[in-house]
Amino acid sequence: MDKPIIQITDANFWYGAKQALFDVNVSIMPHQTTAFIGPSGCGKSTLLRCLNRMNDLILGTRVTGRIAFNDHDVNAPDVDVIELRKQIGMVFQKSNPFPKSVFDNVAYGLRIQGMTDKTELETRVVKSLKKAALWEEVKDRLHESALMMSGGQQQRLCIARAIAVEPEIILMDEPCSALDPTATAKIEELIQDLEKDYTIIIVTHNMQQAARCSDYTAFFYLGRLIEFDATNKIFTNPTNKQTEDYVTGRFG
């Protein structure tokens, strides 16, 4: 059995005085896709953002407990947050390509890291676009603006941008909620392809999506982790009544 890549122990989180997470304990296994599900305000996005310290950007937040990435506490004082976010990349609900060319979007993180060699940059950009299942669609217009692309293509571009810097984990916060069913299906296929190289954690409102593309599912309610198990178990025979009511659409 692999060691967890992320180990969350007794995590609590506050936005100012309001507590958003209560004593959360989860182990995330490497090269698996884990889905966080639950009704709005259940804390699933908050927890996701704790993993690469995106919540640092919000004033007045506070976290206790331990969130270990490869056995190292992400909140430890010696952690370089930029380095952490390189290893734990993120894709957001609304695709957010830079107003630059397709190529420059994907090369952006690499250049920031100091990569200047043109051939090396090109190799990495092409590899990332291929991994993001976008290469065939953009190979003839790498130098056109990314903003000309469709929503689904923009989202896959953001995934290519995230994987260009070779992270270990990709966090996805509602990556398909602004996409049509065809574009959604492409992203879901991609998630399953990416699993062999990366660990993926996806927050989704769409339970079908969690069922289709995740190996493990965590159900949250009111800031607490209610149930965590293999996705197959959660959707066929959950242990907890609240989970059952949520996945069968009777509450939430």
Partner: peptide
């Protein structure tokens, strides 16, 4: 309906 859990069973 894409039934789940008890409904599916």
């Amino acid at each position: 309906r894409q039934p789940k859990a008890r409904d599916l069973r």
